[in-house]
Design a protein around this nucleic acid. Structure first.
Lengths: 156, 156
DNA sequence: CCTTTAGTTGAAGTGCACTTCAACTAAAGG
DNA sequence: CCTTTAGTTGAAGTGCACTTCAACTAAAGG
């Protein structure tokens, strides 16, 4: 019963591809020791880090923010359950807000798309404060949100 | 009071960059007539299409699926409010499911990350049936979800 | 000991949803 | 009529989160 894992083992147990694990290492999200032959050997505690990374992604957090969060873990010792709980708690309000916005979106969906009042710029569905992760990746917004736009009256 | 819009006008009223509008046209999501000088002129009804596109993106639907949805609108006539309501209703179950999964994630967050029971492959947080849009874009999964993985007992 | 399986690297590729650029033309204002 | 502002195109670039590839080396099994 070895107490370190090869990259293949960590991959199988975490469900994360080896290439992704190497990528995480490059970003400083996880770490590994090396064998004499330069192969990675992961401490078992890394398994929990990987779990935290994947769960955080579900919450809609970017790898960069996840890295920042992980950096706040204690340096010397293996993080305790409480350390992890504290870390995960920090995603909580984010998750709450996300759920709130989606619920709002759902409750206004028929009405707002269907009706004639669709006054884009002021619509709940249109201006959810860019907090939804559904926005997707890619280059940043070109129009920062036109402040000089007319009140936007909808057609007949 | 012209009843067609230039790309700049449509951009300001919809809050969507001109480059994005051209992109949507290339993908077949919206359409425009052309002036003698080859400039785009949008019918006012396109405003609602753009609104539908942006709202659908909030729901987490890809442009490709949005295109498919828009293709189901009636061909000859301008879509009625009911047409739009029907279309938006089709996102509803998706939204419900997404909200359900996020709520589940929230309710298990502390417990699952903090405790020693974190049994990755079987965890609610880990296997939400790839239905969350939070997964992000990019290349597809390499490991299709290892079926041959051991029961994954956690350390200590 | 040989073969197979698993690992290594850096560089390049992928997919989505765009934006940016260069080099140009059209339309609107004074 | 000239200038400014707004439009046109195709090609290339961007950011994120990875994957894929080529050319290799290490470790494990029989």
């Amino acid at each position: 019963m070895p107490d370190s894992l090869t990259i293949g083992e960590l991959s199988v147990r975490s469900g994360v591809a080896p290439s992704a694990l190497r990528y995480y290492e490059r970003l400083g999200l996880i770490r590994a020791d090396r064998t004499g032959g330069n192969q990675r050997r992961y401490a078992r505690a890394e398994l929990r880090r990987v779990a935290f990374i994947r769960i955080s992604q579900q919450v809609g957090v970017s790898l960069d923010e996840i890295r920042a969060a992980l950096d706040s873990l204690p340096e010397g010792r293996t993080p305790s359950p409480q350390d992890w709980a504290q870390l995960s708690a920090s995603w909580r309000s984010r998750l709450d807000e996300k759920i709130r916005l989606l619920a709002e979106l759902r409750d206004n969906l028929d009405g707002c798309i269907g009706c004639g009042c669709l006054s884009l710029q002021r619509c709940v569905l249109y201006n959810p404060g860019d907090a939804l992760a559904g926005e997707g990746p890619g280059a940043r917004l070109m129009l920062p949100r036109p402040a000089d736009a007319p009140p936007a009256v909808t057609p007949g």
